[in-house]
Nucleic acid binder design. Structure first.
Lengths: 153, 153
DNA sequence: GTTGAAATCATAAAGAC
DNA sequence: GTCTTTATGATTTCAAC
């Protein structure tokens, strides 16, 4: 992982569909060289995937909420995590330090559906209590943090 | 936006580097047709971008935290949001309902840097108090929610 | 929507630094 | 080892239909 790799990574975080030729022009390498570098970054798990980002409301998911999940005394965190993973509306799942055991981000169509999702969450074995914070607006999300991937890092 | 568009969107959320030819084979259209559809989805703001997902630790960002930001009585939320956006370590920023005004996700290299980030956050005009929850592990993150984009939606 | 054609790109093999 | 060049097939992209 050298400065060139970091430049390539930064470019692919900006535009995940950039062609190898594009990337090569940007960093001053041939497309082949970039291709090989990206392949290695993928193989070593540095780049884990490429995803299109979709406007949630456009696909009928206008309600976002952040939910703290408090465990029961006897909760098995791994089991809870698996159960959380089975709910498609749970988009992200973080195991955290503190009172709660997990914080999850859910996206649903309506507050009605949010209510149903909360019901499903509470029915999971090991979940004692949830605390829901409704997102009013997303200022930005998943923004590339260039602190670690800049060309001069 | 028809079922074909939704299938294409779902496929691009799975693999943002899928070729138009691939997508065409998957949904039963020519590459040209897919190309045109995707162009329209981009132009209308349904698809907002494509991003490589990078393993945070691999780029020296091993510490993730979720931070609640409590406003002062006279806080201007828009100004606070702008100030939050200026910190590169703030990866996501949600305006929320409830006691706090924002919840942000930050990624930094070390807990030392987290401490410095908290200092920067507290120094923002309009920020009264922060509450930090450290992420121990990310079970999954930004997972495609197929509820709204499935072929049979 | 499709097909067809030209430009561009991906990809692997070859050899040069 | 990494890069460039080279070469071929696939893909993109824009016509015209």
């Amino acid at each position: 992982m050298d400065a060139l790799d970091r430049q390539i990574i930064a470019a692919l975080r900006e535009n995940g569909r950039a062609t190898y030729a594009d990337l090569g022009r940007k960093v001053g390498l041939s497309a082949s060289a970039v291709h090989e570098r990206v392949g290695k970054l993928e193989a070593t798990g540095v780049i884990t995937g490429y995803h299109a980002v979709v406007d949630p409301s456009s696909v009928g998911l206008g309600v976002t909420a952040l939910i703290s999940i408090h465990p029961t005394d006897t909760a098995d965190d791994d089991e809870v995590a698996v159960a959380l993973g089975e709910l498609v509306e749970v988009e992200s799942c973080y195991r955290v330090a503190g009172d709660e055991s997990f914080i999850v981000k859910v996206r649903v169509a309506t507050v009605d559906e949010l209510e149903r999702t909360l019901g499903r969450l509470r029915r999971i074995q090991g979940v004692a209590r949830t605390r829901t914070t409704v997102v009013l607006s997303t200022r930005f999300e998943g923004r590339p943090n260039t602190a670690g991937v800049g060309p001069d890092a």
